[in-house]
């Protein structure tokens, strides 16, 4: 009798975690590249690179509420070039959030993609494989200390708002005298229907948070997909009051892709015009991707970058908070292999 009770207790203890884990999904993407980058860090040597590999867990949790479900997601970078589990920092810590979703929309808190990235920047960046050359003037990519609300899809129309509250003290040199609880906020809207997509975002960052000056970012993006062709355009205007990174930086991107079965050909033009740095330069990218099955791909991408951009690319700061994340600029040839699970 006693034995069977113990057995029952043991069985109960073992089943409980299994039930709790039932809705969690372990996922990841391992991406290794071989890149030849002509940058100040790497003068044309071939290098085995990690192309932002990541591993994560996500899932839904029953809250016992009618029409509302809890969810969570944790995702971190796992470096495929040297095996390190990455720590904090924009490119390393990726996502850590909990939320609740229902017919009313979704609310979440933690470290997450900003609506600005999801609905404007990613329109021009998603689909490119090489980590550095593909990331260009992506501001506020993922933010920590954030709460956000995303509306439900209303016939293709959606709005979102996010507030970043990092508890950063005010009165930084040259900063805002008022100590606001909210260090930054982002409001955005998007509309998508019949292959067309339009996204609009405004983001305001307090000087104390980013350091130096108040920082406003306006982004707009559009894409259109018809059959095998996709074209897109993105415009972003960043303005800062004191201008450690320039008073006014305008980024314009136009690109497209052509899908032939499992083969994808793509090209993109980017222009960055910075008034303070007096810089106006272009980046050209072309890429070929071959999907191997549903969960693997190989690619070859080439980026040609004007020398002017190489110079100013290294002056942008605050990468740790996801602002002015330019990556390593320079002419880059990248070949890579990616497996998802």
């Amino acid at each position: 009798m006693k034995k069977s009770l113990i057995a029952l207790a043991v069985a109960g203890a073992m089943t409980a975690p299994i039930v709790a884990q039932a809705d969690a999904t372990l996922y990841g993407s391992i991406r290794v590249g071989l890149a030849n980058a002509d940058t100040s860090d790497n003068d044309g040597d071939w290098q085995v690179t990690d192309e932002t590999s990541r591993i994560g867990i996500k899932g839904d949790v029953d809250l016992g509420l009618e029409g509302t479900t809890g969810y969570f997601q944790f995702e971190t970078r796992l470096r495929a070039d040297n095996g390190e589990f990455a720590g904090v920092g924009e490119k390393n810590a990726r996502l850590a959030l909990v939320g609740a979703k229902g017919a009313w929309g979704a609310a979440q808190a933690g470290r997450m993609y900003t609506p600005h990235w999801l609905w404007t920047s990613s329109v021009a960046d998603a689909g490119w494989n090489h980590a550095n050359a593909g990331v260009i003037r992506e501001v506020g990519l993922r933010q920590p200390n954030t709460v956000a609300y995303i509306s439900p899809d209303m016939s293709g129309f959606q709005i979102a708002g996010a507030a970043i509250m990092g508890g950063v003290a005010g009165d930084a040199a040259g900063g805002d005298e008022n100590d606001n609880d909210m260090d930054a906020y982002n409001v955005a809207a998007k509309f998508s229907a019949a292959g067309a997509f339009v996204g609009l975002s405004y983001m305001s960052v307090d000087s104390d948070y980013i350091g130096g000056s108040d920082y406003d970012i306006l982004g707009v993006a559009a894409s259109y997909t018809v059959d095998a062709f996709k074209v897109y355009a993105r415009y972003q205007d960043e303005e800062s009051v004191l201008g450690t990174v320039g008073d006014d930086i305008e980024t314009t991107q136009v690109g497209g892709s052509y899908t032939i079965g499992d083969t994808i050909l793509q090209a993109r033009w980017t222009n960055i015009d910075s008034t303070a740095a007096g810089t106006d330069g272009d980046q050209w990218m072309v890429g070929v991707q071959q999907n191997l099955g549903k969960r693997a791909r190989v690619w070859v991408e080439y980026a040609d970058v004007d020398d002017e951009l190489v110079e100013i690319g290294e002056d942008f700061t605050n990468e740790a908070r996801g602002f002015a994340n330019t990556g390593g600029f320079g002419d880059t040839l990248s070949i890579g292999y990616r497996l998802d699970f």
Binding site: I260, G261, D262, L265, Q290, V300, I335
Partner: peptide, 24 residues
């Protein structure tokens, strides 16, 4: 173009035809 790209890189300057088994 995809054949040329993959065979010239993954295919070691064209010595190996990797594109055909990849379906190109």
């Amino acid at each position: 173009f995809a054949r040329l790209t993959f065979n010239s890189t993954f295919g070691l300057a064209g010595l190996i035809d990797v594109a055909t088994p990849m379906g190109i």
